[in-house]
Measured scan of single mutants.
Amino acid sequence: VKVFRALYTFEPRTPDELYFEEGDIIYITDMSDTNWWKGTSKGRTGLIPSNYVAEQ
């Protein structure tokens, strides 16, 4: 598990995607895809765009 911080707010387009706000901490559990990672924030899990976060 790696810890990342959201650089921007992300509004999901599908139920599989995770909503998060700029500054949120996201725990990444799967980075197997280059563009979409699986992450958890505020008790919810979903896909996030990798270019919206920076490693802490």
Rank of each mutant, 00 (worst) to 15 (best):
V1N: 11
V1C: 15
V1A: 12
K2N: 08
K2R: 15
V3S: 08
V3D: 03
F4Y: 14
F4N: 01
R5P: 00
R5Y: 15
A6E: 01
L7N: 04
Y8D: 04
T9I: 05
F10E: 00
F10H: 13
F10S: 14
E11Q: 14
E11T: 14
E11K: 13
P12R: 05
P12N: 07
R13D: 08
T14W: 13
T14F: 10
P15G: 09
P15C: 09
P15W: 07
P15I: 12
D16I: 08
D16K: 11
D16T: 09
E17V: 04
E17T: 04
E17H: 13
E17P: 00
E17C: 08
L18Y: 01
L18I: 07
L18S: 00
Y19P: 13
Y19I: 03
Y19N: 07
F20P: 02
F20L: 07
F20W: 01
F20K: 00
F20G: 01
E21F: 07
E21Y: 06
E22G: 06
E22L: 10
E22T: 11
E22S: 10
G23I: 03
G23R: 03
D24F: 04
D24I: 04
D24V: 03
D24C: 04
D24E: 08
I25F: 09
I25L: 14
I25C: 09
I26N: 00
I26R: 00
I26P: 00
Y27K: 04
Y27G: 03
Y27V: 11
Y27C: 12
Y27L: 12
I28R: 00
I28G: 00
I28W: 00
T29G: 05
T29L: 14
T29W: 15
D30V: 04
M31E: 04
M31Q: 13
S32H: 09
T34I: 13
N35D: 13
W36S: 02
W36D: 01
W36Y: 07
W37D: 01
W37A: 00
W37F: 11
W37E: 00
K38S: 09
K38P: 05
K38T: 14
K38N: 07
G39A: 10
G39E: 02
G39V: 03
T40Q: 11
T40S: 13
T40L: 08
T40R: 10
T40Y: 15
K42L: 07
G43H: 06
G43M: 04
G43A: 04
G43R: 03
G43Y: 03
G43N: 08
R44V: 12
R44A: 09
R44K: 14
T45K: 08
T45A: 10
G46Q: 01
G46M: 01
G46S: 00
G46C: 04
G46T: 01
L47P: 01
I48M: 04
I48D: 01
P49S: 05
P49H: 06
S50E: 03
N51G: 12
N51A: 13
N51L: 09
N51S: 14
Y52S: 09
Y52E: 02
Y52F: 13
Y52R: 04
Y52N: 02
V53I: 09
V53A: 03
V53S: 01
V53G: 03
V53W: 02
V53T: 02
A54W: 11
A54K: 12
A54H: 11
E55N: 07
E55Q: 12
E55S: 09
E55C: 08
E55L: 13
Q56I: 15
Q56S: 14
